[in-house]
Design a protein around this nucleic acid. Structure first.
Lengths: 212, 212
DNA sequence: AATACAATAACACAAACGTGTGAATTTTAT
DNA sequence: ATAAAATTCACACGTTTGTGTTATTGTATT
């Protein structure tokens, strides 16, 4: 590292690119060391720069920015990727974060947050605009799968085991009861959850029954 | 709503409580309308106030603050719960968020962020300190369950269907192929994933094989 | 003391699943 | 153009699962 935070911008719209650059260069300790406008040249050239931060647009003309991150990440272990996009689509957010992006900003809110976000990303934080954080939190709240009081203590134990991928026989061995008893419990569990297979029960357990 | 944001603090340590209160009251449009020091009285009295925001400590003497949120939430649909805690333990964070909290702040960073966070929570955002956001992002990245290139396009389609809880016959009907073909694909999928049941395959699909 | 629920267990039968083997056709890559 | 991989389908056999029925024992609740 040098005495400034090196940033590369990948963004196809030149005007937007310039705007971001000028925003960042108001600060002395951030330097935009390169800009790219398509994923092909970004993939080729970025590794040479070893930037601290890459600001990545998702809607590139020749392929998704997520693909770009996926390919660059292994070569640049010290670089933090921050996604910059127009859309607050939850699919995209989850995909972006799970593919190695460390932060996720909406273009409409960059004026207020961009510079601060670069610092945060550099310090190992995860900049997200308020709206994005809200979506992430929602994704946890959807997982309010089964009311705790619906199943008895023992039934929860059985379901937990099932949700680890075990088969009936193994559950019985773990809990020191016969397979028949396990089947007996699961019959009641399935009844209470309104399902007819271990698959469906597991999905409910993880709150993956509706949506996504 | 009135012309200010009404806040209730639930925090057992009186000194900390007073400190938070004085922080918030530097701003005219935030009013601390009550404070509680244990979950029993909080549960009884808070519904009468219908506050905009509840700042909730997790380590109350008589029961977890999470339980408290769980009980209050249904009675106060317009109230936003923000957790205030000493610890950045990931279990707690996920539990808190999935039980109805809208934000999660660490006590050590409240000086900088508290007032801003109240505004954000009020506007429907999700205030989180940078460290918490980082943990949340990490939880997505751990879910890098299966390498995309491991399975073919068709195999992904089959697995997706399976992960919706469908049985083989239904998968075949959805994709317009015979059950035998579904079985054929799943045989290869199980081989590639090193599993021996639909249960295990689904767990891998959702990244739930290790931990949690 | 009576009633309800929880936990345990067995038997039975059909449906669904896991796996071995084999093979034809289409798509993709070299 | 040729090899390799992907997609499709079938038959067979043993295992696992889903569900109906029934019963014993322990533990609360009233």
């Amino acid at each position: 590292m040098t005495n400034f935070i090196s940033v590369i911008i990948v963004e196809d719209k030149i005007e937007m690119c310039r705007q971001i650059k000028s925003l960042l260069e108001k600060t002395d300790d951030i330097k935009v060391i390169a800009t790219f406008h398509d994923s092909k040249s970004a993939l080729e050239k970025i590794p040479e720069y070893e930037p601290d931060i890459v600001l990545m647009d998702l809607n590139l003309p020749d392929g998704s920015g997520i693909e770009c991150i996926k390919n660059l990440k292994p070569k640049l272990s010290k670089t933090q990727f921050v996604i910059l996009t127009m859309f607050d689509d939850s699919e995209l957010v989850f995909k972006g974060l799970s593919h190695g992006a460390i932060g996720y900003l909406l273009k409409r809110s960059i004026n207020d947050e961009l510079v601060k976000s670069i610092y945060e990303a550099y310090k190992g934080g995860s900049p997200m605009s308020t709206q994005i954080a809200r979506m992430v939190v929602k994704s946890f709240q959807n997982n309010k799968a089964i009311d705790e009081d619906l199943l008895t203590k023992r039934e929860w134990e059985i379901l937990e085991q099932l949700a680890k991928g075990k088969k009936y026989k193994e559950i019985g061995e773990t809990l020191f009861i016969s397979v028949e008893t396990v089947r007996s419990h699961l019959r009641k569990i399935y009844e209470k959850l309104h399902v007819h297979s271990s698959k469906e029960a597991i999905l409910k357990y993880f709150g993956k029954n509706h949506s996504r």
